[in-house]
Design a protein around this nucleic acid. Structure first.
Lengths: 315, 315
DNA sequence: CTAATTGATGAAATGCATTTCAAGTCAAGC
DNA sequence: GCTTGACTTGAAATGCATTTCATCAATTAG
């Protein structure tokens, strides 16, 4: 491989001068600059990124830890991150963790090895105490709220959002509200359970189904809900794909929506538009964008992104 | 930052010995090894990845150029790539191009600068002649077929798949078959048009709608198709989300599926399972996995992944 | 009891570009 | 005529870990 020394030799200047040309410094005689540029062109030279990163100690590469790489919600987050990154000339490396603690730590170690300038955590498997120490090597930003002072976050207030949505259902006269969630151990699930209890009290048996991700999970969940002795009059799904499945099952049973059963989804995903599903938009794309901003500014701010109720016909 | 010299000094050995410990060589006296390990622990040392990459000339980082970062099909590809990469201990950097030629070239330049060991092209904006020269710096693998000898690819035979699907519809008695596509300028669109002409001859006016990506695009397309003086009896959608939209529109019009209108989608996506949509599975996840294999083996093979017909109730 | 291994270790070279420091030229200002 | 500031430029230090080469000790084989 040809390197900066080769260029210097061929152009009859010192490496410093080549470096100056490469980095567009003023104070390089125009004939030398031209000569260097010519040789660079002739030798088809490109500076070695590792050498640059090594000496500069900066990479413009951000790692994004995401548990699932085929989940619409994380895709939305990633979408926002990529948008902003692309504009700011940052590169994004995706780090799939499957909620594996060791894997997650492995990725965090990479910030210590200087591979990344910062890391965005879309969700996490480890306790904060395991994660926080890594923030001394570079900014770590969470897409969920955290009170950890060392960790900046861009988040939406899930608890309030759940309270709002459930209260809205209650106000519309629903007493029998069922809901679906993804991972039982997630932050989001904890929040909705708390909100549910706040609004409706104890969760009736069978009114909460977990591990719902896709449209057919929703379909299956709806089937279960509808076989319950006391059928729910409204269902709050943890995503619009799941809500879509619920909608389709209801429709297959000739149930009227929303009179027989009301449905609300989350995240305002494309499937919901066609089906006219009401949804709570947690603004995941915006959260992603904001998270990226926080990393590149090495900020430890807590940025609250307001969620949005999108009322369509299913509620 | 503490570096390998610090460790060497504190442990009373040479940097070579530290390096040997770091890389698990035999032939290090166990007491020295222990001493080094102790100091590493005490000083909380992690080797600098840039220094390693610089000297090794290898990164275990693969770039994946993808035009859209919020498109289900590319997500499936990426999903496959990430799965394999994670297992093989490779990192994936996603490079969103929006089909911008300059951006794409910019990403390819990065393989020249040694940032990536290889690049996977899920789709491309530039002509091959612009892309091929970069393959001298590292493997470039395409997820579409190419006859370029320098470029390995993992692909499915789109033309055959389209021929098959359309022939199947014809055999079932359909003469009026409409179809949707994504970008007009894409490889896939070119193939389906050719296949269509092969099977059915000229495309009737209004029988081809482009720029369909999401469920509501499908919904809108169906609406247009159904207003045509000669209504199609079957629609071949360019994805299951789009097919889902078509399904929902048809249902909203009390049309029987498949007797009034048959629908086939592509890619076997979750939405299709719930709706019972027939689909042609182009095995995007497998293609992604295979593409990653090709990069890490620096192979220029052309690997054909067979597509699969998935017959459900919509056809 | 030599010759040939195996084991252990450090000095120095290597990979590559950036940046600081010192030094030198030349023209403008007093 | 001398000082000062704007330009130019190169040598050398820097960032960090790997690897080759040479050396030396301790065995083992013959």
């Amino acid at each position: 491989m040809t390197n900066i020394h080769d260029i210097a030799k061929q152009a009859g200047v010192s490496v410093s001068t080549v470096s100056r040309v490469l980095n567009n410094y003023k104070y390089v005689a125009s004939d030398k600059r031209a000569a260097v540029l010519d040789i660079i062109e002739a030798l088809n030279y490109t500076p070695n990124k590792h050498a640059i990163d090594l000496i500069r100690g900066e990479t413009r590469n951000i790692g994004v830890i995401l548990p699932y790489n085929n989940n619409t919600a994380f895709d939305q987050l990633l979408h926002g991150i990529l948008n902003k990154a692309s504009k700011q000339d940052y590169l994004i490396t995706v780090l799939p963790s499957q909620y594996d603690k060791a894997k997650e730590i492995g990725y965090l170690e990479k910030i210590k090895s200087k591979l990344f300038d910062g890391i965005i955590l879309t969700s996490r498997a480890n306790d904060w105490e395991k994660i926080v120490p890594y923030s001394q090597y570079g900014p770590i930003i969470s897409c969920e709220f955290t009170e950890q002072p060392e960790i900046g976050c861009a988040y939406t207030d899930r608890y309030r959002s759940f309270l709002d949505a459930l209260q809205l259902l209650k106000n519309k006269g629903h007493q029998a509200v069922a809901f679906t969630t993804a991972r039982l151990a997630s932050n989001s699930t904890t929040q909705i359970i708390a909100a549910y209890q706040e609004i409706f009290g104890d969760i009736p048996a069978g009114y909460h189904i977990t591990n719902c991700q896709s449209l057919d999970d929703g379909y299956a969940a709806a089937q279960q809900f509808m076989q319950l002795p006391e059928r729910p009059s409204a269902i709050y799904a943890n995503g619009d794909e799941v809500a879509g499945g619920i909608y389709l099952y209801a429709q297959s049973q000739q149930l009227q929506i929303p009179s027989d059963v009301a449905i609300i989804g989350q995240e305002n995903q494309p499937v919901g538009i066609g089906l006219g599903l009401s949804t709570v938009d947690h603004q995941l794309t915006k959260i992603g964008e904001q998270a990226l901003n926080l990393v590149i500014h090495r900020s430890k701010e807590k940025v609250n992104i307001p969620y949005q109720m999108v009322e369509r016909q299913s509620m």
